[in-house]
């Protein structure tokens, strides 16, 4: 399965939500596309590896050398030493775990490496104004690039969107000021929120529009839209658009109706008749 597109069409946050919720395994590659504005992130390929919807590694090359070089740069172990170890113990598990099992690295060092490899660079990718993405579910996981640690994409996406300064490419993706938000998460949100995100979260499910939330919290409406977008990308909330016109025949918050309430039930003979009629139409002509 290969899924492709442009980040301007399907944003990185939405891709992360899709891969996490779909529990996907494979490689997400991102190729930045040059735009008129100066790039904040270097224009090189980025590869992010997912295992069952969790991020397990990130690299800028597919040469399987990235983690070893990071380990050496940190001054933990020389690459030559790692190579010698790999001759004795062929990789059948993530490299980080192998080195930990052999006593060459400890848990804290692995966490530092994971932070440098995944948690720091990926959020910066959210600043890309344009890029081509491809998700390849058939790409094997690179054990040599994996520490054995993983991160939920929603947490990484939240971090990335909090860092974002230029929201111009995201403006058409933000929830509308007169929309309300409903919760998709039962109880407490399953990820860490900032104090202001918590304040907005308190208004989810309360049929208050984003404009209303902004007024209540004394925040700019745009800021509330950004926060609500983050909650949506994290899979915590969904936007419900309100009918904005004043000539609406009923209240925007009117309760949902059923088919029977609105139009009455249809008779069995009607349903049988229409199915027979459509069956003829469904048959190939001639």
């Amino acid at each position: 399965m290969k899924i492709t597109g442009y980040l301007s069409e399907f944003s990185l946050g939405e891709i992360f939500r899709f891969l996490e919720q779909g529990q996907k395994t494979g490689c997400l590659s991102i190729k930045p596309v040059e735009t008129e504005t100066l790039p904040i992130v270097p224009l090189k390929h980025h590869y992010i590896f997912f295992r069952l919807g969790q991020i397990v590694a990130a690299t800028s090359e597919l040469d399987h050398q990235g983690l070893q070089q990071l380990i050496e740069q940190r001054g933990f172990i020389h690459v030559t030493t790692i190579q010698r170890l790999l001759k004795l113990y062929p990789l059948s598990q993530p490299l980080g775990l192998l080195l930990k099992t052999q006593g060459a690295l400890d848990s804290q060092q692995l966490q530092l490496l994971f932070k440098q490899q995944v948690l720091t660079p990926i959020p910066e990718l959210f600043s890309l104004t344009e890029g081509w993405f491809k998700f390849d579910a058939n790409h094997p996981l690179p054990l040599a690039e994996m520490t054995g640690l993983s991160a939920p994409p929603r947490e990484v996406a939240l971090a990335g969107l909090r860092l974002l300064r230029d929201w111009t490419p995201m403006m058409d993706k933000l929830p509308l000021p007169d929309s309300t938000m409903i919760s998709l998460s039962e109880g407490q949100p399953p990820c860490r929120l900032t104090p202001v995100e918590w304040q907005v979260w308190e208004y989810v499910d309360k049929t208050v529009t984003l404009e209303g939330i902004a007024q209540a919290l004394n925040l700019p409406v745009l800021e509330v839209q950004k926060i609500c977008f983050r909650l949506m990308v994290a899979g915590l909330a969904e936007e419900i658009i309100n009918i904005s016109t004043e000539s609406s025949p009923s209240s925007p918050t009117a309760p949902p109706h059923s088919a029977e309430e609105s139009s009455g039930s249809l008779s069995q003979s009607f349903l049988t008749g229409v199915l027979s009629f459509l069956k003829v139409k469904a048959q190939p002509v001639g």
């Binding site: 442009y6 069409e9 993706k173 409903i182 969904e238 936007e239 658009i241 949902p256 609105s262």
Partner: peptide
């Protein structure tokens, strides 16, 4: 057209919220 999935999701949320049909 993955760029349309956002709009489709919006429509779905709107419809589900308004009508249990």
């Amino acid at each position: 057209r993955p760029q349309d999935f956002r709009a489709a999701r919006r429509i779905l949320a709107f419809m589900r919220h308004r009508a249990k049909i």
